[in-house]
């Protein structure tokens, strides 16, 4: 087993009287891609937001770099946050700054990187996600998918030890989901430690090294994608996967259509492919 990055023990979080997390324990190891799935209100997002202390846990501990960050002071918390990247559902880019400034602000202010150096790296990262030409643009001039790619780059520029993704594709138009997932797959391939909350089951199946099923405030099941997706399950997990199977089918059709529409022509053979796919889905 590789090195443990985040050691989470008996984590609880309440909002007023409502207990959302009821005692979660897990280790996030270096290089892991942990995908959290589960029904709405099950605590996925809250758990993720507790990891970088956007939400202060009510109880329990998170050990990062040898210190319990739950009990740390504000200054330490800020330092810890700067070492974890976070990508939000609604991007949360800074509308008054150019893309380049969005990316270089934190490295310059928090890590003390010189402007020239920060900009050089930002441009390299932008090139990696295919947005080098947008450096001087403002967020409002970008599409949703482009914004989310910039948000990912903004986090990467801080050289985080782990990246947290909070439903990164949920606010996107369907045709833009792919470009964001591609960037995330690329990150995973390069060994980035990632914790992802998502409804994209295909991504979970293809990219995750471990899948957590959160439900009712607990981790009620976990395992490799094969264990989760390819075995029969009883109870809540079975029920949940039954429901999202349809979702998986939709994704499959969507990806197929994307393929077909990539060029300007639709051949008879491609039409046949779709017809066959839809027929399968109906059964």
């Amino acid at each position: 087993m590789s090195e443990v990055l985040l050691k989470i023990e008996n984590l609880k979080k309440s909002f007023g009287k409502l207990e959302v997390l009821k005692g979660l324990t897990t280790d996030i190891c270096k290089g892991e891609v942990v995908v959290m799935i589960g029904p709405s209100g099950g605590g996925k997002s809250t758990f993720l937001r507790c990891m970088n202390l956007l939400e202060q846990p009510t109880k329990g501990s998170i050990v990062f770099d040898g210190i319990d960050i739950v009990a740390a002071d504000e200054k330490t918390k800020n330092r810890v946050r700067s070492e974890m990247g976070m990508v939000f559902q609604h991007f949360n880019l800074f509308p008054h700054l150019t893309i380049l400034d969005n990316i270089t602000l934190a490295p310059r202010l928090v890590r003390g990187v010189a402007r020239a150096e920060a900009e050089k790296e930002a441009l390299e990262l932008l090139a990696r996600v295919g947005l080098a030409d947008k450096a001087k643009a403002y967020p409002q001039q970008l599409s949703g998918g482009q914004k989310q790619r910039v948000a990912i780059v903004r986090s990467l520029a801080m050289h985080p030890q782990v990246m947290l993704f909070d439903e990164p594709t949920s606010a996107l138009d369907p045709e833009m989901v792919g470009e964001v997932l591609d960037v995330m797959k690329d990150l995973a391939k390069n060994g980035m430690t990632m914790v992802v909350v998502t409804h994209e089951m295909r991504f979970a199946r293809d990219v995750a090294t471990r899948v957590l099923f959160l439900e009712g405030g607990y981790i009620s099941a976990q395992g490799t994608p094969q264990e989760i997706f390819e075995q029969k399950h009883d109870g809540r997990l079975g029920e949940f996967l039954g429901k999202v199977a349809g979702v998986g089918f939709r994704e499959k059709v969507r990806d197929e259509l994307r393929d077909i529409l990539a060029d300007d022509t639709v051949t008879a053979e491609e039409v046949e492919r779709i017809r066959k796919l839809l027929k399968e889905g109906r059964q």
Partner: peptide, 29 residues
Amino acid sequence: ERGQHEAASALGLGPVETFLRIVFPQMVK
């Protein structure tokens, strides 16, 4: 938006930097 504070926070910006660099310029407008 709350998200502006959260994004600044997640990047490790302190409250003063967040106000001066993120919140204040947007407030002025």
